[in-house]
């Protein structure tokens, strides 16, 4: 680590009497620098990694809307998030067939992408301003996803579904409270649903 050199080593082991002994101390700094860089790495990583990621969410305003937008029932996909990591889905409430799937990529994502493809084939793409590039527009699918979490759902399920919206690039989605008929529908799919998309949209815009 640190070694000491006497200045007069060359002149044999006998130091001259009277002359001051000159010592030069040489310290090996390598371990200290190692430690320094290790700590730097640690602090750099903790500063960068400590900042959490966030998922921005916008919810509909509570002010009731007089005329809710008219949406074709064929564009709508409703996802009901149930207990035990199950997700139920149906399309047009008038002729609702209840189906369930999982949050895996081959489950829910396939359902959404399949519906998206059908909607896009029927209605074409929609142009709307791109929030990331002001002045430009991007084409999005006119599909509408309604997300309703049932009391048994976990918070993770909701985040997963919102994530799926980003992955599948769904431009129109809304989170609503689940209604009693839908709860009964999940219990017993034979009951069916007795409301229309228009009524559902109206309920969506008067949530409180």
């Amino acid at each position: 680590m640190a070694d000491m050199q006497t200045a007069d080593r060359r002149s044999g082991n006998q130091p001259q009497r009277g002359s001051p002994r000159r010592l030069s101390i040489r310290i090996d700094l390598t371990p200290m620098v190692d430690l320094g860089f290790l700590l730097i790495t640690f602090f750099m990583l903790t500063t960068i990694l400590s900042k959490p990621q966030v998922m921005p969410v916008a919810m509909p305003d509570k002010t009731p809307v007089q005329e809710p937008p008219v949406v074709s029932p064929q564009k709508v996909l409703t996802l009901l998030l149930g207990a035990d990591d199950k997700v139920y889905w149906y399309e047009d409430p008038h002729q609702a067939r209840l189906d369930s799937t999982s949050y895996q990529a081959e489950g829910l994502r396939r359902v959404i992408l399949d519906k998206k493809e059908r909607v896009t084939r029927l209605f074409g793409q929609q142009e709307r301003p791109d929030p990331r590039h002001p002045g430009h527009s991007k084409s999005v699918s006119p599909m509408v996803v309604i997300i309703k979490a049932m009391p048994g759902a976990r918070y993770k399920n909701v985040v997963d579904v919102l994530d799926e919206m980003h992955i599948c690039q769904i431009a129109h989605y809304v989170m609503l409270d689940i209604s009693e008929p839908e709860k009964a529908f999940v219990q017993d799919p034979a009951v069916g649903l007795n409301f229309t998309v228009a009524q559902q949209m109206a309920a969506a815009y008067q949530r409180h």
Partner: peptide, 18 residues
């Protein structure tokens, strides 16, 4: 929503984007 906060953030941890 009742107090007119319609935009907020949910804290999540990172996951790979497929």
């Amino acid at each position: 929503i009742d107090i007119n906060v319609n935009k907020f953030n949910l804290i999540t941890s990172q996951e790979a984007d497929p």
